[in-house]
């Protein structure tokens, strides 16, 4: 999904304005002319400036780019689905990994994505389980990262 530069420019200006309004409530250091709002405001000013330049470019450049260009992936339901699935998998991991535990969540996530990408069932099963166990061992046991154990807590 590609939008015209002018649209991005407008969004940037909006962001800059939001920063200005939020920083207005920042406290000042007594006796100091400059507070924690100065630097974000300078950056917001630069953001607004680049927003203006983006609008100029989007409007002035020839040949003009269309307002919205639909990307290849958005035309193919399969590709769009793959992106939705990937994002969904990350969100699902964030939500359920604590309850289910790392090994189960990771295996399900890998298997779901591989099957969607049409990897054969046998390869999927081997790759998903092996990866989850290797990661659990390497990161969880060797490097002592507190990966959630969840349902497998009995084996801990």
């Amino acid at each position: 999904m590609r939008v015209n530069e002018a649209v991005i420019g407008a969004l940037l200006i909006g962001l800059a304005l939001a920063v200005f309004s939020i920083t207005a409530s920042f406290p000042r250091i007594p006796g100091q002319p400059y507070g924690p709002d100065l630097f974000p405001r300078v950056i917001a000013g630069m953001l607004a400036l680049s927003g203006v330049l983006m609008i100029i470019r989007g409007v002035a450049i020839r040949p003009r780019h269309p307002l919205v260009t639909v990307a290849d992936w958005a035309r193919s339901p399969r590709a769009a689905g793959a992106i939705a699935l990937t994002l969904g998998a990350i969100v699902a991991y964030i939500l359920v990994s604590d309850t289910l535990g790392f090994v189960i969540t990771a295996t399900l996530m890998l298997a779901g994505m591989m099957l969607y990408l049409r990897v054969s069932v046998v390869t999927t099963a081997i790759a998903a389980v092996a990866t989850a166990l290797v990661v659990e061992y390497a990161f969880g046991s060797l490097m002592r990262i507190p990966l959630p154990r969840g349902l497998l807590v009995v084996f801990a």
């Binding site: 964030i94 994505m113 989850a132």
Partner: peptide, 27 residues
């Protein structure tokens, strides 16, 4: 095949991010 590799890379990204903050905040 990339079809096998991509999900595995994603898992590594998630575990790596988790390791830095020790919480799902990293993810």
């Amino acid at each position: 095949p990339r079809r096998v590799l991509l999900p595995i890379i994603l898992l590594f990204c998630m575990v790596g991010s988790f390791a830095i903050t020790s919480s799902v905040y990293g993810i």
